[in-house]
Design a protein around this nucleic acid. Structure first.
Lengths: 177, 177
DNA sequence: TTTTCCATGTAACTCGTTACATGATTTC
DNA sequence: GAAATCATGTAACGAGTTACATGGAAAA
């Protein structure tokens, strides 16, 4: 549903065609989400069928015609519903990386430390990139800020985990192989 | 891949049948992941075909026979690969809830505050539940800890966001409707 | 005796992805 | 003339879900 909210929200500001929407999302909203081309075209078709948006063709010369989408009244109502639902509910987060941690005692502690240091490096790079992101207009800077806060928290936690495996590494005889 | 790692990791400790695996994951690992029954049976079939695990039937009386799975040598190797990959890479997290935030200026600030307070409530409840979780054995307590750290970070950030919309609410004339 | 638990699965569907196809137009 | 960009899509696949089907055993 989040992607539908995204498309409706963008079309609410100004009419756009599919290529344009995909381009904008992949370029300017990449930190926060993504939307592949086939998905964009598929969702736009679907929402047209449901009456949330309307199409009209625009052709410039011999180029492939653009299908420009416009938010309808029903679409505006749907946008309001989705937005309120999105704001009122926390998005559930699952950390796939935790599954490896469950089985970390299958490896020697020193190995775990080496692997987690790699993870730490990638995380730190993401954080640096987020901090280097240019100042954004309107409410979008909240998203960047969220990302920074989250990555800082992840880094801090990871450091405590690494420290513990480091301690275990200097007290050998802990792993199961 | 994470679910395959999970199944291989559990089968590495002891042989189990599908029902048992599903049960264990949904009951004891619910904070960290989930695995529906059809998915479990499907993955077990797939991994059997790939030679990572082997089956043997066990029948008790007239009950439906159990298909007990056992990790093979190839499965152990695959487990090692998946585990190292999992530990060395940070899991990318996308916050669906951020998309609503991008469009928060479509609503009156006071409305946004009310909706985010709801989100805050649900988040606080999750945190309380995580804190109330019983002490866990081995490396699993890391997962609980991770969840607590993350939820605390989310709550703190959400509070700053709410504060800002609250400030905007007392300075009216900010929204676009 | 009816419900719950044990134990297996299938079928249909949703959501999203990758890879591919088409063809004009601008840029190098 | 070749390559990148604009603009649309289709087809095949992957991962996962819900709902449904089956049938015996234990518990209420």
């Amino acid at each position: 549903m989040d992607r539908e909210l995204l498309l409706l929200g963008l079309l609410r500001r100004t009419d756009m065609h599919g290529y344009q929407l995909h381009e904008f999302i992949e370029r300017d909203l990449a930190t926060c989400t993504d939307l592949k081309k086939p998905t964009a075209y598929f969702l736009l078709d679907k929402m047209t069928k449901r009456g949330w948006i309307t199409q009209h063709e625009e052709r410039a010369g011999n180029r492939p015609p653009r299908r420009v989408y416009h938010l309808s009244d029903a679409g505006e109502a749907q946008f309001q519903r989705l937005l309120r639902e999105n704001l009122s509910q926390p998005s559930l987060t699952r950390f796939g990386g935790d599954i490896g941690l469950i089985f970390a005692d299958s490896l020697a502690a020193a190995d775990v430390v080496a692997l987690l240091e790699q993870r730490r490096g990638a995380l730190a790079a993401e954080l640096a990139a987020a901090r280097a992101a240019p100042a954004h207009a309107g409410t979008f800077h909240l998203v960047i800020e969220h990302r920074i806060v989250h990555l800082e928290s992840e880094l801090g936690w990871l450091d405590t985990v690494i420290a513990r495996f480091n301690a275990a590494a200097s007290t050998p005889g802990e792993h199961h192989d």
